[in-house]
Computed example of a mutant assay.
Amino acid sequence: MSEFQQRSRQSTDADILAEINTMVEAERTLRDRLASGQAEADQAQKDLAALEVRIDQSWDLLRQRRARSEFGDNPDEARLRPAAQVEAYDS
Rank of each mutant, 00 (worst) to 15 (best):
M1D: 10
M1C: 07
S2M: 05
S2F: 11
F4D: 02
F4G: 00
F4P: 05
F4R: 09
Q6E: 15
Q6A: 12
Q6M: 12
R7P: 00
S8E: 07
S8A: 15
Q10F: 13
T12V: 03
D13T: 14
A14K: 14
D15F: 09
D15I: 03
D15N: 10
D15C: 00
L17C: 06
A18Y: 06
A18C: 06
E19W: 13
I20V: 11
I20Q: 03
I20W: 01
N21G: 14
N21S: 15
N21R: 15
N21M: 10
M23W: 05
V24S: 04
V24R: 14
E25K: 15
A26Y: 02
E27V: 00
E27P: 02
E27T: 04
R28I: 02
T29S: 10
T29P: 01
R31L: 12
R31K: 15
D32V: 12
D32R: 15
R33T: 12
R33K: 13
R33H: 12
R33Y: 05
L34E: 07
A35L: 09
A35H: 03
S36P: 00
S36H: 07
S36C: 01
G37T: 06
G37R: 09
Q38G: 12
Q38D: 15
A39L: 09
E40K: 11
E40F: 02
A41K: 12
A41M: 05
A41P: 03
A41E: 14
Q43S: 09
A44W: 11
A44S: 13
A44N: 07
Q45P: 02
Q45W: 09
Q45A: 10
K46N: 04
K46L: 11
D47A: 11
D47V: 01
L48R: 08
A49P: 01
A49D: 09
A50I: 02
A50P: 02
L51G: 04
E52G: 14
E52V: 05
V53S: 05
R54I: 00
I55F: 06
I55K: 00
D56N: 11
Q57I: 03
Q57A: 02
S58M: 14
S58N: 08
W59S: 02
L61H: 02
L61I: 07
L61N: 01
R63E: 09
R63F: 10
R63V: 08
Q64A: 10
Q64P: 03
Q64I: 06
R65Q: 14
R65S: 11
R65C: 10
R66G: 08
A67D: 06
A67N: 09
R68W: 04
S69C: 00
S69G: 08
F71S: 04
F71Y: 13
G72R: 07
N74D: 15
N74L: 03
N74V: 02
P75C: 04
P75R: 07
P75W: 13
P75Y: 10
D76M: 13
D76E: 13
A78L: 06
A78E: 03
A78V: 05
A78Q: 09
R79V: 11
L80N: 10
L80V: 10
L80Y: 07
R81V: 07
R81F: 02
P82F: 05
P82G: 07
A83S: 15
A83N: 06
A83H: 05
A83Y: 01
A84F: 01
Q85Y: 03
Q85W: 03
V86D: 06
V86P: 07
E87C: 10
A88M: 10
Y89H: 07
Y89R: 13
Y89G: 00
D90H: 06
D90V: 07
D90P: 00
D90M: 02
S91Q: 08
